[in-house]
Design a protein around this nucleic acid. Structure first.
Lengths: 334, 334
DNA sequence: TTGAAAGCGCTAACAA
DNA sequence: TTGTTAGCGCTTTCAA
């Protein structure tokens, strides 16, 4: 089955390729009524569809953007992607998805391939290790927006949560109650991943400066499968924590799992508060107090900025760091 | 900043474009050692990257596949996508993601655009309404694999769960205990979405034929936001259900939410079993008995089939429907 | 062992 | 109002 090209349409309609091109691109200004109908008919008869690859080559734009997330399995990433895709859909753009898995090598490969495929822009959750590469893209004027993580060496528009605020909300929620010993549970801190570091630091600072009844702070961090062991150790001591701040949804899972295994009651034995909303927060026993980030708005904002970069390249643009405000969902776990 | 093309590399290396092309494609068989080094050097000096759009135009292959899911926010879709992406990564392919939102119109638009972009193949969760369009693609020999839903008018490789088995597992798990009245809770059944219909029918049949202690079966279906009201009504009667089978994760959420609101105890007041695993199944109170589908294996299989269609187009291929076996995760909710 | 030239399917400047 | 032509960046035959 031969592919129908513009030449076929032109022949069938008895006009030239360029006229067909005009027609396809909606430039009817000077087009004769009959020509127009003839082409219309030919397109229909042949069931012709333009080849976007050819068009892309000529026009140097692919109406495609790339998104590099850490892992599409994280709820937050999914929501961000969904928001981006919705805007892309409005603008007739398309999305190539890449999972970097927090591996700089993989990220590098994806960036290079996205460039090779001539995508019009990139939204990334940067690992923080491909600075030179991003730098180069930026220098070439390549539209890029970062999400969730700041790469301080680079001047890139970056969308993320007001992590300090999130930490403050958590501490404030706990400090006026009876809780005295707060445990913060976090994914690995060594990687310098912005949200983790910012949240951890903000909690520590806040507790130190005006922690209300909170007398003591413990910090647990590590790979997800180490968390439970570390929690266990921490709770061996006499002055065990009476409140836990879980840094994100995955650590919350570990915390709840631990609490369940140890047969403790929330919030009587230990209070729990966490960042990220989870699907079961409302009907868990007890319903979980969470601090949620507006993932959809954040994703949409990232896409909006990227599109302004792509569609109005000449516009004066000052890259900035945009913080979104977290929301407290007060329920009954603390 | 001018884009570096092959011509630039050729000039810099003092050879012709075709030789550079040979080099890039690893055809060194007849290439002089010095030529090779010169080109290597030039590529490095100019930091040259081939333009895949141009290559795609010439070669009629884009090393890109399209995935049309109902909604990327569903955990199952996410897992399937992740599995597909992993295989794509191995094969150096890339993924364009589309959310059809169960809207045939949107699906149609995406299919057409994916074709226009010349993607090498498509994996779709079909809405079931674009039969003619899919038919046409199939006739053209376009590689397509369906997931989760059967379109009986079409001969397409289709990956889905053994829904009958899943339903049987659920009924068997309940029928030997004391439960007498089973309520099945489902998303809208009118749309003829395969998993829903198959599961609902299989439950009904099984209960009728050998339902053990189960005397009565009630069926609730509707949009997600109507479920809670319908549950409420059902539980008004004297012979209210003592067991619930939730058809998927979203309906399970509604069920748990309802149970919580009504202050009922699981499994004493009402037992619960559901299809799809949920993140909190293990540490919920009580831990939830679920019937999970092997989403990753299913996604991977879909991708494998698609790749064999793409990479070995001449191979004799008989399209088939492949069912994956569900797993019972026996916990304590029934 | 390398190069010249044609062509993939489209767009756009310019000519007619 | 429409057609001619060149060219986007690459691959590939064929010739040298």
């Amino acid at each position: 089955m031969k592919k129908i090209t513009m030449a076929d349409v032109a022949e069938q309609a008895g006009v030239s390729k360029s006229t067909v091109s005009q027609y396809l691109n909606g430039r009817f200004d000077y087009m004769g009524k009959t020509t127009r109908t003839k082409i219309e008919q030919a397109v229909k008869d042949l069931n012709y569809r333009p080849n976007m690859v050819a068009r892309s080559l000529k026009q140097k734009t692919t109406t495609t953007i790339g998104v590099i997330v850490a892992n599409i399995l994280h709820v937050y990433s999914t929501q961000v992607i969904r928001a981006i895709e919705d805007l892309c859909n409005e603008k007739e753009f398309h999305l190539i998805i890449c999972n970097a898995d927090d591996q700089p090598k993989k990220e590098k490969k994806y960036i290079e391939m996205l460039k090779a495929k001539q995508v019009d822009g990139i939204i990334a959750f940067p690992t923080g290790d491909n600075i030179a590469l991003y730098k180069q893209l930026l220098d070439e004027g390549y539209p890029i927006v970062f999400m969730d993580r700041i790469v301080k060496e680079l001047k890139v528009d970056t969308i993320l949560l007001d992590n300090e605020k999130a930490a403050h909300i958590a501490v404030e929620e706990l400090m006026h109650k009876d809780f005295e010993h707060l445990a913060v549970v976090s994914p690995p801190l060594l990687q310098q991943v912005t949200p983790r570091v910012e949240r951890a630091e903000a909690v520590a600072k806040k507790v130190e400066e005006q922690g209300g009844n909170i007398q003591k702070l413990s910090m647990i961090s590590g790979e997800i499968n180490e968390i439970s062991k570390k929690l266990h150790e921490l709770f061996q001591h006499d002055d065990k924590p009476d409140a836990i701040f879980a840094m994100n949804d995955l650590t919350l899972h570990e915390v709840l799992s631990f609490v369940k295994k140890e047969n403790m009651k929330i919030p009587e034995d230990v209070a729990v508060i966490s960042v990220d909303d989870v699907s079961f927060a409302n009907f868990y026993t007890p319903p979980l107090t969470t601090i949620s980030q507006p993932a959809f708005e954040m994703g949409r904002k990232a896409a909006e900025i990227l599109f302004s970069l792509i569609l109005e390249p000449d516009k004066q643009h000052q890259s900035e760091i945009i913080r979104f405000t977290p929301t407290l969902n007060r329920r009954e776990s603390c």
